[in-house]
Computed example of a mutant assay.
Amino acid sequence: MTDIGFTHVALPVTNLDASIAFYGKYANMEAVHRRTDPKTGENVAWLTDHTRPFVIVLLQEPNVEHKLLPPAHLGVACESREVVDRLCDQAREEGCLNNGPADAGPPIGYWAFVTDPDGHILELTYGQEVALRVQETAKEKQPAESSV
């Protein structure tokens, strides 16, 4: 099988294990690949939530010079407002809640920003209409059925 389409986003991190733990807790992701690059000595991990063929590639580096900061962020959909609230409570206790939770109504929904160990922003959401919008546009692109 060959990959087609959008497969990953790569982020520099300073502590691979801390970042894997953060994305496991706040985005329900796990490492499906780890390696040390033989040329650079850089530690690498691929994280997925197993909902689609997509990974976040974490690249361990001595420092992170370009953080993913608002308005830039990664977004993860949660199964309910209660899950967003629970994760926000955890983030508040751990000192990494950046903003929210807040309800912006459709199509944005209920959201909050949390900050990963290197300062990158992860958005937790419930009720965003991403899947709905993608499904609607996919239907529009389908060829009309022939009546022949």
Rank of each mutant, 00 (worst) to 15 (best):
W111T: 03
M29K: 04
A31D: 15
L87Y: 01
L74R: 11
C96Y: 15
T137S: 13
G105Y: 00
I4H: 11
E145G: 08
E129C: 05
W46N: 10
P62H: 06
A31Q: 05
T36Q: 09
L68Q: 05
N98A: 04
V13C: 10
Q128R: 14
W46L: 08
C96Q: 13
F6S: 15
V83K: 05
D103S: 04
L69F: 08
E136C: 03
I121P: 09
H66R: 10
T115D: 12
I4K: 09
K141C: 04
V83D: 11
W111L: 01
T7F: 14
L124K: 05
C96P: 11
Q60S: 02
T2E: 14
E61Y: 15
F6L: 13
P53M: 01
Q142C: 07
E145Y: 13
L122M: 00
T125N: 05
A10D: 00
H73G: 02
T2R: 09
T40V: 06
F113Q: 08
N15Q: 14
E136Y: 09
I20L: 13
A102Y: 09
N63T: 03
V64M: 07
K141H: 07
H66P: 13
G41W: 05
D116F: 00
L69K: 14
G119S: 07
D118Y: 11
G95M: 05
L11P: 04
H120C: 06
L124A: 00
D116M: 04
Y26S: 03
E140N: 15
V57R: 10
S19V: 07
H33R: 15
H8E: 10
N98Y: 03
T125Q: 11
V9L: 06
P101Y: 04
L97E: 07
A144S: 08
K39V: 11
G105K: 01
G127Q: 14
L122V: 00
I4A: 07
M29P: 01
A102V: 13
G5Y: 07
S80Y: 06
K67P: 10
R133V: 04
F6N: 12
H73E: 01
E82K: 08
S80H: 06
Q90V: 03
P12T: 01
V148L: 13
L68A: 03
Q135E: 11
E136F: 12
K67F: 08
N15G: 12
A21F: 08
